[in-house]
Design a binder for these strands. Structure first.
Lengths: 233, 233
DNA sequence: CGTATTATTGACTCCATTCAAAGATAGTGG
DNA sequence: CCACTATCTTTGAATGGAGTCAATAATACG
């Protein structure tokens, strides 16, 4: 039930995310060619799926606006949040190995995204020279991000949460958002799940950070007041 | 100081790992072409590096025999073990994003490996049709493996260690080794580091598993006696 | 306005860490 | 071959931090 809105004013070549998203390493001509096969600005609502774990691989996607979560359900049905996706970030590479997705991507609010259909990937790779290399780079970026996540998911609750906030701040900054003032895309429960903590511990640690003067927190709203201090944890 | 031994009897086309390694999805002709650019059977000793974190990206590698560890050193110099590499597994995709490696790969014993030099990747991708797709699949496999690692690295010490052993067992089985009798490639210290535990806890949990009859452990040697029981944890 | 969801805070418990000591093994050199 | 050392492993006791259970508060949403 995705609502495809083909707005010709919004294609890759005049998207404000061109320096982060798939086109970032391409020439003007290559971006123009890419635009002809990418479906831009598909809009879905909070809670809806971009794709589901187990579905046949059908497309690579790029978040255009809003945030989404990558979720894996284990054999006992427990939810594990693997990652938060921000605008300009790509997803779907996990579907290439066995031609089916290893996780689900769920919108955390109303979002828009773009898709590169699976059946187009081979042709764009052969027709647009830079695309193969760029897809490998994005895939590699996903690998590095998950390597860094493994590194961050150790240590105390304070360490984990501090690293989570710093990572979020850095990525928001890279996308032109404020790195010190933002809304958490996840609930305490979801953050806890992501970091291997209980939601009570997440809540307590956030107020603890506030007491120490590192940040100001009011439900989802976060204002980081001492990023250096936070990094020192 | 890598010792390149070009043994023409051992190329991709008659390697026993052809069903797991890079050639697994290729035709006979494609494998033959691949063999001309892959350097086979480079041998290094325990503790030596295949590549180092921060080095310029120079090659993708495939472990041929023996085991290796992927290690990331954080800004404070702490070692984080990201993964254990078994025969037939590829590494180096983390180097594609920024043209430098995000982690080091270190031999855990004497190993041999094969390399696809960086400067050959573009040409083999364009000359051997199946290779691009196969590289994407391997890259995707790495992503899924690290997603699964994020899922496993939660819960109690028992859960983490059980999942670690099961994962190792499954991968050994896929490579033709015994899934119930093997030597741990890592020390207690390294396992603990990998799972976010102390080495004392790893040691205690292993003896606890032995007491419960799940396995028999003698230093590095492991004999799994009740894989079903282990999975039930 | 009422209900469901999300978040905060407190008290108690338990599991993993920490600190400490001793035992086992592999590798080295005399 | 044995002694010697370094490394790895096991085990114990005490501590502390995160989990659990529970109650209340704040917010969002229909």
């Amino acid at each position: 039930m995705n609502n495809v809105i083909k707005d010709f004013k919004v294609s890759c070549k005049n998207c404000n995310l061109d320096s982060i998203c798939l086109p970032r390493g391409l020439s003007q001509q290559e971006i123009e060619n890419l635009s002809t096969v990418v479906n831009n600005n598909i809009v879905i609502q909070k809670g809806e799926y971009i794709y589901r774990q187990g579905d046949a691989f059908s497309r690579l996607v790029a978040i255009k606006s809003g945030t989404a979560k990558e979720v894996n359900f284990d054999s006992q049905g427990n939810e594990h949040i693997l990652n938060v996706l921000l605008p300009g970030e790509l997803a779907g590479f996990d579907g290439l190995y066995l031609d089916k997705y290893n996780c689900s991507v769920i919108a955390l609010e109303q979002i828009s995204f773009c898709e590169l259909p699976a059946e187009q990937i081979d042709t764009v790779c052969s027709q647009i020279p830079g695309i193969t290399r760029e897809l490998f780079k994005h895939s590699s970026e996903v690998i590095i991000a998950s390597q860094n996540r493994v590194v961050s998911n150790k240590g105390s609750a304070e360490t984990k949460l501090a690293l989570f906030l710093i990572n979020l701040s850095d990525r928001l900054k890279a996308r032109g958002f404020s790195p010190v003032e933002f809304n958490l895309p996840l609930t305490r429960q979801e953050i806890g799940d992501h970091l291997g903590l209980t939601f009570e511990t997440v809540s307590r640690t956030l107020t603890h950070f506030q007491d120490k003067g590192y940040l100001r927190v009011q439900r989802k709203y976060i204002e980081i007041k001492d990023l250096t201090g936070l990094r020192s944890i």
